[in-house]
Simulated assay, not measured.
Amino acid sequence: MFEHLNSPIQKIELPPFERLFVKRDDLIDPYISGNKWRKLKYILKEAQNQNRTHLVTFGGAYSNHLVATAALASRKNLKATAFVRGEEVTNQMLLLCKLYGMDLIFVDREAYKNKIHLFDTHFETDKNAYFIDEGGACLEATLGCEEIIDELDTTYDHIFCAAGTGTTASGLLNGIYKNNLKTKLHIIPVLKGGDFIAEEIKKYSSISNQLILHTDYHFGGYAKTTPELITFIKDFTAKTGMLIDPVYTAKMFFAIKDLAEKQIINNNDKILAIHTGGLLGMFGMMDKF
């Protein structure tokens, strides 16, 4: 588990683009896919270095991160617990977590804001417990995401990636610097008011003019969508044969197409989009389709 894996790069035919490629991290694993695999790789290594056998993390009721952590713990014969934000519910994602043996603790949204306090209150005496922040945000996570750039065997004018916490973006930016690339990194925050992502990226990377934030493609905010975005998803998948999700990757691909139409990027530029997985998130929006 977590041996070196270089996910494939696929060229897609999507007018008006002539050189649009996708790094298919969604194909890494069905349940520990995309940037979840990347982030957990070195988090697991650090937990093992500390001889911790109980992974404790945080997320919403439709969190891909929770499913990924649960699957990882099961495969590594580790215990896993998740603090789930909001009222107690049952859904497909949490069912997967339970099937993988993860214990779920539902907490109200106010208490959820203080994750360290929750961890200390419940697991202060558990010397095996290892704290993993929501979405896996930490320095170790950026190291795994940095390897995306290391795996590239050619250069690109632009690299695009959707962002929730900025951890993946930090890793990508560090990888660009390390490999001395001139590539522009375009980050699409999926939350409303996504300018805060820049401050999150600064925690693990230095900001330069190679980083460009596009904050107008949130479609109402995190896990929000519009009929326009749903129509785009249906058309994109039908034309390319590639599944994308409404929370992250659809917003990224919509942004790429829109920026090209506005001539902010050139159609014949060499573009790489990072498919960060998260396709299970569609379960939370079945009524939209």
Results as ranks from 00 to 15, higher is better:
Tyr156Thr: 09
Lys182Ser: 15
Cys161Met: 10
Ile176Arg: 11
Gly221Asp: 04
Ile176Pro: 06
Leu181Lys: 14
Ile207Asp: 11
Asn179Trp: 01
Asp153Phe: 01
His158Tyr: 15
Thr165Leu: 09
Tyr177Arg: 12
Gln210Ala: 05
Gln210Glu: 08
Leu152Arg: 11
Asn209Trp: 00
Thr167Ile: 13
Tyr222Trp: 11
Asp195Val: 13
Lys203Ser: 02
Ala162Cys: 09
Thr155Gln: 13
Tyr222Ala: 00
Ile207Met: 10
Ile187Asp: 00
Ile207Gln: 09
Thr183Cys: 06
Gly220Ile: 09
Leu185Cys: 02
Leu181Asn: 05
Asp216Glu: 15
His158Gly: 00
Ile176Glu: 02
Lys178Gly: 08
Gly166Glu: 03
Tyr177Pro: 00
Lys178Val: 01
Ile188Phe: 08
Cys161Thr: 15
Ser208Arg: 06
Asn174Gly: 06
Lys184Arg: 14
Thr165Lys: 05
Leu211Asn: 07
Ile207Arg: 07
Leu181Glu: 05
Gly164Asp: 09
Phe160Ser: 04
Gly220Ala: 05
Leu191Val: 10
Ile188Asn: 03
Ala163Lys: 09
Ala162Pro: 13
Glu151Pro: 00
Lys178Trp: 01
His186Asp: 00
His218Thr: 03
Asp150Arg: 12
Gly164Ile: 02
Gly166Val: 05
Thr167Val: 14
Gln210Asn: 13
Ala198Ser: 12
Asp150Lys: 10
Asn209Phe: 00
Lys203Trp: 01
Asn174Met: 05
Gly221Asn: 06
Lys203Asp: 02
Ile212Arg: 06
Ile149Met: 06
Lys182Val: 06
Ser208Leu: 03
Ala223His: 11
Lys192Asp: 05
Glu151Asp: 15
